[in-house]
Nucleic acid binder design. Sequence first.
DNA 1: CGCAAACTTGACTGAGCTCAATACCGGTGG
DNA 2: CCACCGGTATTGAGCTCAGTCAAGTTTGCG
Lengths: 245, 245
Amino acid sequence: MGESSLTSDWLARRADLAPCPNCHLRSLCLISAIEPQHLKAVSGHIKVLKPLRRGDVIYRAGAPTRKLFIVHAGAAKTSLNWHGGHEIICDYHLPGDTLGLDGLHTGLHTTTSVALETTHLCELNRESLGQLASGHPVLRERLCQDISRALARSQRHQLEISAKTAEQRLACFLLDLSTRLHARGYSPSAFRLPLGRHEIAKHLGMRTETLSRLLAGLRKKGFLSLEGREVRLLQQDRLRGLAGN
Amino acid sequence: MGESSLTSDWLARRADLAPCPNCHLRSLCLISAIEPQHLKAVSGHIKVLKPLRRGDVIYRAGAPTRKLFIVHAGAAKTSLNWHGGHEIICDYHLPGDTLGLDGLHTGLHTTTSVALETTHLCELNRESLGQLASGHPVLRERLCQDISRALARSQRHQLEISAKTAEQRLACFLLDLSTRLHARGYSPSAFRLPLGRHEIAKHLGMRTETLSRLLAGLRKKGFLSLEGREVRLLQQDRLRGLAGN
DNA sequence: CGCAAACTTGACTGAGCTCAATACCGGTGG
DNA sequence: CCACCGGTATTGAGCTCAGTCAAGTTTGCG
């Protein structure tokens, strides 16, 4: 049985699609920087998109950045690829995360973003963002914070990829996922992986085969149990020791 | 003989330390987003620091982010380290680059920044930044752009580290440096490395020994000549082919 | 039910790491 | 001016972690 997927869970909680004032995401979302009494006015700028299915492209590298997106429910990945062949997954995104921030400097997206499962997005175009930012200093502060957070995450990931062993990287990934799910109200020790094996491997800079072996290894050592995408972390403390933070 | 170092060159060009209105950096610098007629008023917020020497710490991971810094002349590195032992160099910074952007989200620096040679910085505290941003929409747009650019650089670096061979990473590094120096008015094909071998290696996620061997290899293949830190790119096109962008 | 995609497991290989020795270079003091 | 010294760079030899290639196996979807 296990937990149901992110999507169905979030869907169950959403009484309706009414935008920000009733949104359950609260402080996780960029928009929460706007004072409650102004939220209703702001809602006009936020468009709630109809659900995307796994594999749907949110934006493509090279396309103009006209909008930002916020994950309302579901999950997405952001990837970079290299003359057709190679692809890496820069990051994965959970509810509350803002998508498209890397396109602000040139006005063109540098990455491609794709839904990982059935996903609901909120859309905010750049002009609206500019207008809102003028009136709400807290919002523009928060926007900088969100880009800055993405930067810090990316740098931490750099460290992991370039200085840790494959097993340590996997441990870091599992712990990061656990923490982020926890922050969103889920169990930190039993969850469903939002990415497939191949995708996790591409995120961690290793081959699918290596990842598979490592997962088998961690299972044998009793750090976790897993069937398919359902994971249960059995010894988070030891996993943390392995990851070495 | 070769080119003199970044520092002495920039120093030679600087007639005096008069801040922004006469600054030679122009559009490379964040502050250039402010309209020329307002620059004089703004200058009060910008403090020009006395020169740092190689190894001087600009800020340390964990310390509160009260200021941003802009490299006026010289160079700096930004690094992340991992329980004392391991260190990686996330990025290196040339004149015009803004330092401290990764600390905006928590208000604490996540990285440590250190001068690579004699370096002049301009300092801008966060309150000033906030004030300026209120009055100058273009400036706040530019701030977002600069953070966004740092993010995109970091992601590209992720790709390089996790999907390219050591030799390709080295080629990418040399080309990136060449491009950035060119943008600052230097020769793209003959320059002095701002980082030592050990530092370059830590930036590229490899060992010093490996880097040394690769440099020797590229020299033998006729891609470049080098003595000490002075590099001359002899076949940029082939280097580009190797790097594969 | 059947097929393709996703995942696992095994055996072998090789790029890059480790350990170790040597060479070089810039600065300091006699 | 030279001799010395410590940090920096190069080169060599052997080893190892993770990649590659190749079968299987399981899963999920039409």
